[in-house]
Each structure stands twice: as C-alpha cells, then as structure tokens.
Amino acid sequence: MAGGRKERSGQLSGRGSRIAAAVGIGVLAGCIFAFLFPHGLVPSKLPTEIRPLKSNIEVDSSSCESSEKINLLKADIRKISDKNVELKRTVRELNEKLRLAEQGKGRAQEQIMVLGEPHKAGPFGTVKGLRTNPTVIPDENVNPRLAKILSKIAVNKELIVAIANSNVKWMLEVWFTSIKKLGIPNYLVVALDDGILEFCKSNDVPVYQRDPDEVIDSVGKIGGNHAVSGLKFRVLREFLQLGYGVLLSDVDIVYLQNPFDHLYRDSDVESMSDGHNNMTAYGYNDVFDEPSMGWASRLARENAWDQAVFNEELFFPSHPGYIGLHAAKRTMDHYLFMNSKVLFKTVRKDPNLKKLMPVIVHVNYHPDKLPRMKAVVEFYINGKKDALDPFPDGSE
C-alpha cells in the first residue's frame, strides 16, 4: 500500500511541474506580445500623444495663412486708396469741364432763342412756357472770403440766408433754433453788427459779417425791420454771383419742415405769398388792404417797401422806356409756406386745416412777432393744442 502512494504522488508532482511551466510560458508570451503590440493587432485610433502635435501644426498653418491674407488685404487697400486719389482728380477735372460746358450752354441757348425753329402751339391746356434760365458762372473774385464760407456750408449749392441786427436778436434765436431742430445744416446769418456776430458765435450758428460798407453799415446798425429788410437784395447779389441758390429768409419765420424738400427748382424765383386765398395768393400782385387786420397796408409809399419793389421788378411787363426782367416765377402753396394771416384768421379755426403741417410759418402780418412765433413752436412742435387761441386775428 505504501509503495502505491509514492508512485501516485510522484505522478502528481510531475504533472504540477508541467502546468507551472506552461503557465510561466504563457505569462512570458503575453509579456512579449504586450511589448511588441501595445495597442493590439488592429489599433482603433492614433496615439493620443500625437494629437496635440497635429493640433499645433494646424494652428501654425492657419496663422501663416492669416498673415498672408492680411498682407494681401493691406496691398489691396493701398491700391484702392491710390485709385481713390486718382478718381478725385478725375472728378475735379470733369467738374471743370462741366462748368465750361454750362458756360457754353448758356450762350448756345441764347442763340437757339434767336435762330431756333419756331414752336407751334399745342392743344389747349398742354402748352408750357419756354425758358432759357442759363446757369450762372461762379465768380469767386467777387468775394473770396464769402466764397470760402459758402463752400463749407452750402448743400448742393443751396442755403438759407437771413440778415439781422441786434434789434431782432430774440426772434433770430427762435428762427435758428427751429432750423437746428430740423437738422438743416445749410443756413447762414449775415450779421449787420458786432452784437449779432457774437450772439451767433456763442450759439454755434454759421455767421458772416461783411466788410465795411457805408450804405449797409449806416442802415444795418440802426435801421428798423423794413430798412434792414431792404438791404437783403443788395447782400443777396454776391451770393448769386458766386453761383449759389439762396432761400432768402426773414427772421420772423418758424421752420417746421426742411424747405429744400419742397422746392420745385423750375423757375428763376420761387416765393411765398402774402395772400390768404387762391385769388390773393396766386392771382393778385398787390398787397391786400383789409382794415379788420388792424392796419392798412396799401402801398402808399411803394418805393419805400422792399416787397413792393420786389413785386414791381418781378411782375411789371416791358413797356416803352422799360425792359422787364422776363424772370420765370413760382408762388408756393400758401398752406405750406404760410403767412400769419392765413394761420390766425383761417387755419386755427378749421379742424381739418389744423392737422396740416406747414413747411414754414411767417409771422409777417402781426407786430407782436416774438410771442406769436413762440406760440407757433408750442402748437406745431410741442403739441400744445390751445397755444394759438389767446391771440386775436389782427393786431388790435
């Protein structure tokens, strides 16, 4: 029995040694395989350690491309700037050629009027007037200082011009405040004394003071409204000689819309009317005499009032010993370019007319100008519905 156990024990011992050897070989083989193929036989993705390197390469490449693009853009900008300078030079040359062409056009039109073929009258109601209306050739030698100012202020060669001395200082303030509120940049005050010059400068208002002039100085510094108003045509001449279109404005006007948006530009003169209806505004060239307004304004001294002289020069026909202006004329809508008689006698009493927004209101019929101007501002700009109610129709 003892001999049999020893033999079995030896057999078990030999089998265990073989198993141990096999396990050892397997472990060794596994280590070798792991060493040779750390990511398996078919790696599913690239090593993570390489990814940052790839990312860095992409960033560096993108950075290089951006730098090249920036350099190309800078080169393009330089080319565009050079072309812009060249275009500006070309525009200046074209403008000069256009000016010369317009000069020739004016002369050609005069010849056409003399030598051109006669025009037949068309059907009733279809005939329009033929006008030359030649372009004015600017002459900066007339007033180089004014020419420099206008080149900075005017828009499309147009601007509003008012003439003022210290007698109308507070009306002038309402005047330019309404213009500023609308954002109109092209306006200018012609100061007739030092007080208005400084007042405009302190309020950032474009202002111009003429060189000493015996006639203008004597009237401008001490004259009343009518005397000062009579100077405007003398002053206006220089603006026209410099080639500018002028909206000549009194200072007793409140601006409610930009007037340049409502001009027709089809006539030599576009003017508002002192008339109060279709007949008096568009068909009658005298001043209406109505005692109910508190004062009679028939032209007893016609040569003393600028409006009367203006009407005479503009409307009087040619006759023996006199050659008329032959100027084309347009009268503006009296509800848009409204005088104070239309406003206080008609518009404020009509619910429908009160809804209209005028372009301007000219307080020309009433001597209490400043309070009425302020009332116009309150009514149309600030929306105070009863602002016009306290005033009488006339000036009583």
Rank of each mutant, 00 (worst) to 15 (best):
L159N: 02
L159Y: 07
I160E: 01
V161S: 10
V161C: 13
V161Q: 07
V161N: 05
V161T: 10
A162V: 08
A162Y: 04
A162C: 15
I163P: 01
A164T: 08
A164Y: 01
N165K: 10
N165S: 15
V168T: 05
K169T: 10
K169S: 06
K169M: 13
W170F: 15
W170V: 06
W170M: 12
M171V: 05
E173K: 15
E173Y: 12
E173M: 15
E173R: 14
V174Q: 04
W175I: 06
W175S: 03
F176R: 02
F176H: 06
F176W: 09
F176Q: 05
T177N: 14
S178G: 12
I179N: 01
I179T: 04
K180R: 11
K181D: 14
G183V: 09
G183L: 11
I184Y: 09
I184F: 11
I184E: 02
P185I: 07
N186L: 08
N186R: 09
N186K: 10
Y187S: 06
L188T: 03
L188P: 00
V190G: 01
A191I: 02
L192R: 05
G195F: 12
G195S: 15
I196S: 02
L197K: 06
E198I: 10
E198N: 12
E198P: 06
F199G: 01
F199R: 00
C200D: 03
C200T: 04
K201H: 15
S202K: 13
N203P: 09
D204L: 13
D204S: 13
D204T: 09
P206A: 07
V207I: 07
Y208E: 06
Y208W: 14
R210C: 11
D211K: 10
P212Y: 10
D213W: 03
V215Y: 13
D217H: 06
S218K: 15
S218A: 15
V219L: 07
V219P: 00
V219Q: 04
V219R: 00
G220M: 05
K221I: 10
K221L: 13
I222C: 11
I222F: 12
G224I: 09
N225K: 12
A227N: 06
V228R: 01
V228E: 01
V228D: 02
G230D: 05
L231E: 02
L231Y: 00
L231P: 01
F233T: 04
V235M: 10
L236H: 05
R237L: 13
R237A: 12
R237T: 10
E238D: 15
E238W: 10
E238C: 11
E238M: 11
L240G: 09
L240Q: 13
Q241E: 14
L242C: 05
L242G: 02
G243C: 06
Y244Q: 03
Y244E: 03
Y244W: 11
Y244G: 00
G245R: 05
G245P: 01
V246C: 03
V246A: 00
L247E: 03
L247R: 07
L248N: 02
S249R: 02
D250R: 03
V251D: 00
V251I: 08
D252C: 04
D252G: 03
I253Y: 02
V254C: 08
L256W: 01
L256I: 08
Q257E: 13
N258A: 08
F260S: 02
D261N: 14
H262L: 07
H262V: 04
L263H: 05
Y264F: 15
R265W: 08
R265T: 08
R265A: 08
D266Y: 14
D266G: 14
D266E: 15
D266C: 15
S267V: 08
D268C: 14
D268M: 14
D268R: 09
